[in-house]
Design a protein around this nucleic acid. Structure first.
Lengths: 196, 196
DNA sequence: CTGACATATATAACACTGTTATGTTTGTCA
DNA sequence: TGACAAACATAACAGTGTTATATATGTCAG
């Protein structure tokens, strides 16, 4: 949520309304008329303050990016590299679960017409860099940049892939008692391959 | 593509037009007016033959499902279980690359308003079952159903996660020389954990 | 204080979307 | 041939994001 001091009252109201609608109903629930009505302003405010719908989506994308970034900070200060990354995984899965609309927006799965701004993209890259720093701790000090990157990408792929599958109608519903346990097992197993 | 004998000329023209537009520009390029114009009919045909836009998306979803299913058949007849699943992975990645719009539709990433029909969902489940049969070959004959399912899900999660990352603006562009090689290494490494 | 300019705002209109309504044409069958 | 169903063309509808037009408010220099 934005701070009061850096934003006019209208702008803030608009963004709050958009965030609430998004959280409740995803991008479908967030027409400019719905946002304006909920904020108690007319639609023109969305154009003057945010340059239109894309600007609203950018603001939400940045929120999503901050959430992902915070998840990548969850492992900070952990006693071991493995414990750090396990904490990152839990935080990431929590994020996906509690803020799925934001998660989907981050992965370009929300609105076929939305392309993140350059600023937004820069923040997404910074979030990946955080993950990469954690991954580096799994490797010896002289490990190649490529190896570290590959580790970070594989970790992320595993998490992201599972998040998608938990909601896919092709994946079995009845046979998976505990998705979280399954995912954490797979992640831990993967991390163990770096410790041997 | 549908067979001539089971479909009227109009219905076929409409579906061909839709497929072409979808392939070129994804769901955004596929308004009912664009489909009708390309097919040389009026929009009403989409309602009488397909019950509307959702019916078009269902037909395309079924195409996507058939593609995924075919990818899961790629490993049939391979000399080892590992070779079979490696072939499945290559076919799956080929599918995602060559038919990305179909792939996204299959994973619910195309159109926030689209929900697959029950028939379409059933086909998606059948595709997963094929993958599961390949995964079973990695395990001893007395392996539990749960273990086999977990293996299939992890394999799929890894592939799906990587497909998503290759297109994510947060993932490094310049640092990954060869995504395919990276993914296949990660998949092979995962498969190797079942062979020890 | 006033005028020029920028920003914010309300409302209407526009162009596009998927869908429904209305009427006509064509095909099937007793 | 008439009744009915399916297919079809076109117009109208209700919703979408956006732009156009006019008005109100805020800022700043002279």
């Amino acid at each position: 949520m934005p701070k009061d001091g850096s934003m006019s009252e209208s702008k803030q109201k608009i963004l709050e309304a958009a965030s609430e609608l998004f959280l409740e109903g995803g991008v479908k629930a967030m027409s400019v008329r719905a946002i304006a009505a909920k904020a108690g302003v007319s639609t023109i405010g969305i154009y003057s303050h945010f340059k239109g719908k894309q600007g609203i989506l950018d603001a939400l994308f940045i929120e999503a990016t901050e959430m992902v970034s915070a998840a990548m900070d969850a492992g900070n200060g952990a006693p071991t590299a493995k414990a750090g990354m396990m904490a990152n995984a839990e935080a990431y899965l929590d994020l996906a679960e509690k803020h799925y609309a934001h998660y989907r927006l981050f992965f370009g799965e929300s609105d076929p017409d939305y392309t993140p701004s350059e600023e937004a993209q820069e923040l997404a890259r910074a979030a990946f860099m955080k993950l990469r720093e954690h991954a580096a701790k799994l490797h010896p000090a002289d490990a190649s940049s490529q190896d570290i990157q590959e580790t970070a990408l594989t970790f992320w792929a595993l998490l992201h892939g599972f998040v998608g599958l938990t909601r896919h109608m092709g994946a079995p519903r009845a046979g998976v008692a505990d998705w979280r346990a399954l995912i954490m097992r797979a992640v831990e197993e993967k991390l163990n391959t770096y410790l041997n």
